[in-house]
Design a protein around this nucleic acid. Sequence first.
DNA 1: TCTGGGGTCCTAGGACCC
DNA 2: TCTGGGGTCCTAGGACCC
Length: 408
Amino acid sequence: MCSMQAGILHADLDAFYASVEQRDRPELRGRAMAVGGGVILAASYEARAFGVRTAMNIRAARALCPHLISVAPRMEAYTEASRAVFAIFDDTTPLVEPISVDEAFLDVAGMRRLAGPPDLIAQHLRERVAAEVGLAISVGVARTKFLAKVASGVCKPDGLLVVDPTREMEFLHPLPVQRLWGVGAKTAEKLRGYGITTVGEVATLEPGRLSNLVGKAAGGHLHALAHNRDPRPVVSGKRRSSIGSQQALGPKRRSFADHEATLLGLVDRVARRLRAGERVGRTVTLRFRFGDFVRDTRSHTLAEATASTSTFFDAAHDLLVARKAEIAGRGLTLLGFTISNLSSATAVQLALTFDKRDRPELDRTLDSVRDRFGSSSIGRATLLGRSTGLSVPLLPDPGTGSAVTGFR
DNA sequence: TCTGGGGTCCTAGGACCC
DNA sequence: TCTGGGGTCCTAGGACCC
């Protein structure tokens, strides 16, 4: 078997929230409808035909589509549907990389003997999701993650598109630049200024020139994607790296005490989710959006990771108080709280410092650590600087979770 | 299009360390 | 005492995605 095989699937549920509502409420089927209160979270394809889009305010949406039906979101129903679909993904291949609630990459290259070629696996996946969960899912199949994602986007809704590895450029190059991952409104506008509107045109640019236009990393990235160079593997078992919550406050002026109460609610929500996931975090970020809709952030990193509501609140409150006068002057229309720098709640970091001549003592110490926490506990050992010491972060048994400090 | 809520990744300067 | 190279962490901000 040659290596030029299309073995990566990108599976993406169509108009996810809206489709769940149409599934559960037959009277909504075939109708222009949307999920959301003040703002559209998801629009059915019937509504999209009128120009209704995600993030559009409901009044603007009604101006485009007067008979639009809007329904309140039911997050539990979407979470449940997502779980059911991911169970089918996991049943399809062990290599599943979630991207969001409604999409994932699946590597099925190694499943040929068991389950057949990728296009057949993709078709079975679509049939199972339709039959068992009652939702339409589009699947792109290609040799790289990037191209699989482009393919699923192009074949929506309820489509299946396999990109033949011998005809990749034929497929890719006529597409608009916005299809490239990382090209949004700003970058597309910038490129348009230089007469570049298609992926093919990006591909002909020198990498150096592209980097001058959009920045070093983005330039290299775009150049690679335009040539379908995307070596990233499908990685399962990834964990979230930040958790946050935010609240829009509307145009009404509020007292500082109101903002403090809002903050407490946000911190409590995030800290609960953190504890439920058995995780701790160190960096507290406050997100502001002022009366003029200008956004800003302030962050603070704690000395130690925690999941304590009061510790988070104290740190976040300091950041809020520091901007009290500014908030009073400009008004605040959104407050957000995010905790990042996450680690497992049971992780223990143990720093060992040894004289480089005393290797036997180091080995004895590592043995005792293995005895106490198990051989899988030592995650990584790195030489520091000019071989002056060793730093050994470890993960003990999830059961013990005890912190070991001052070990020497 | 008068503006949600959840995330990710990258850049760049400064502090600090060896 | 001065200077340089190499590295990490922190903070702020920008762009992007679903």
